[in-house]
C-alpha cells in the first residue's frame, strides 16, 4: 500500500508540475500583459515598462518560472497583479465558495443519480425509464448558461422566490446562513441538473447490467426480497463505475462551472480563473490551475480508494 501511495504520489506530482509548466508558458504566450489591464487605454510604452519592472515581468521567462517555483516551495503563491493582494488570501474566499458550491452540487447530483439510475435500471425499456432517458439526453445536450438563465427567469424574475445572483444578499448588513443557502439553490440546481444527466445514465446502465447477472437470479431463487437484492447487492456493485466517473469528472465539473458561476455571478474559482486569464493575472491563473490539478488528482485517488473499499478485487497493486 505504501509503495502504491508513493508511486501514485510521485506520478501525481509530476503530472501537476507538467501541467503548471505548460500553463505558465501558455499564459505568457499571447501578446499583452497585466500592465495593459491595469492601465487600460491610458497605457503607454513607458508606463507599461514601469509596471512590468515593478511586477518582475521584465526579466526572462525562465527566471520568472524559477522564481515562481522558489516561492511555491516556501508556501508563497505570489501576489495578484490586479487585485494587489496575496494570491493565497484572494483564493481563500473563492476557494471556500467553490468547495461549498461543488460539494453540495456533487452530493445532490450523486443522490439524484442513484435515485434516477435505480428507477432506470429497474424499469429498463418501460415508460419510467424512457422519461428519465429523455431528461438525460435533453440536459446532457443543454449548455449550463441556458439552464441557469431559464431558472433565473422563472424562479427569480417571474416568481421572486429565489435570488438571481451573488452569494448573499448585499442589502443585509449581516447576511446569515439562510441568505447564503438561498443563493446556492439555483446554481446548485443548474449544476446538479446537468451533472445528474450524465451520471445517472452511467449508473442506470450499470444497475440494468447488474440486474441481469447470475448472482441476482441466484439470490431471487433463494427467496431474497427484490429490495434487499437491489439495495444490498446491486447498488453496491453498480456504484463502482459511478464513483470512477465522478473521480474523472472533477476537472469537467470545475471548468463547466465557469459558465454557471458567470450566469449567477457566483464568486467561485472558475469565474476567477476566467477573469484572471482575460486580464493576464498570471499568479492567480497558475494558482487556480494548481488547485484544480491537485483536486483532480485527489479526486481520482479517492475514487480508487472508495472503489477498493467497495470491491476488494479492485486493488492498485
Amino acid at each position: 500500500m505504501l509503495r502504491t501511495l508513493f508511486t501514485r504520489g510521485s506520478a501525481s506530482f509530476l503530472s501537476i508540475a507538467l501541467l503548471i509548466t505548460m500553463v505558465f508558458i501558455m499564459a505568457h504566450l499571447p501578446p499583452g500583459g497585466p500592465a495593459f489591464s491595469i492601465l487600460g487605454v491610458k497605457a503607454t510604452p513607458a508606463s507599461v515598462a514601469a509596471i512590468n519592472s515593478r511586477l518582475g515581468l521584465s526579466i526572462p521567462l525562465w527566471q520568472q518560472y524559477l522564481i515562481w517555483w522558489g516561492h511555491l516551495l516556501t508556501g508563497n503563491l505570489g501576489n495578484s497583479y490586479l487585485l494587489n493582494r496575496p494570491v493565497a488570501q484572494i483564493l481563500g474566499s473563492y476557494f471556500v465558495n467553490t468547495i461549498a458550491f461543488y460539494t453540495i452540487s456533487i452530493l445532490v447530483s450523486v443522490a439524484a443519480s442513484i435515485g434516477l439510475g435505480l428507477v432506470q435500471g429497474v424499469y429498463y425499456g418501460r415508460w419510467p425509464a424512457r422519461v428519465i432517458d429523455f431528461y438525460q439526453l435533453a440536459f446532457y445536450a443543454l449548455p449550463g448558461f441556458l439552464v441557469g438563465t431559464v431558472l433565473i427567469m422563472f424562479f427569480s424574475v417571474r416568481l421572486g422566490w429565489l435570488p438571481a445572483s451573488g452569494i448573499v444578499d448585499v442589502r443585509d448588513i449581516s447576511p446569515g446562513i439562510g441568505s447564503f443557502a438561498a443563493h446556492l439553490v439555483l446554481p446548485v440546481t443548474t449544476v446538479a441538473l446537468l451533472t445528474t444527466a450524465s451520471l445517472s445514465r452511467y449508473f442506470g446502465e450499470a444497475v440494468h447490467e447488474e440486474l441481469g447477472k447470475e448472482y441476482v437470479r441466484t439470490a431471487a431463487a433463494k427467496g431474497v426480497s427484490f429490495s434487499a437484492i437491489l439495495f444490498k447487492h446491486v447498488l453496491r456493485n453498480a456504484l463502482r463505475p459511478l464513483i470512477t466517473i465522478l473521480g474523472l469528472s472533477f476537472p469537467y465539473i470545475f471548468t463547466g462551472g465557469v459558465t454557471v458561476e458567470t450566469v449567477f455571478d457566483y464568486p467561485g474559482l472558475g469565474w476567477l480563473m476566467w477573469r484572471s486569464a482575460l486580464e493576464r493575472d498570471y499568479p492567480v491563473v497558475i494558482a487556480i490551475v494548481l488547485i484544480i490539478g491537485v483536486l483532480t488528482v485527489l479526486g481520482n485517488f479517492l475514487a480508487d480508494v472508495v472503489n477498493g473499499l467497495l470491491d476488494p478485487r479492485a486493488s492498485y497493486e
Binding site: 422566490w161 443585509d172 446569515g176 439562510g178 441568505s179 443557502a181 438561498a182 446556492l184 439553490v185
Partner: peptide, 13 residues
C-alpha cells in the same frame, strides 16, 4: 437544506 434556505431567505429584509 432547501427548506431551510427558502424559510430563512426573507426577500423582505
Amino acid at each position: 437544506l432547501l427548506a431551510t434556505a427558502l424559510a430563512t431567505h426573507n426577500p423582505a429584509h
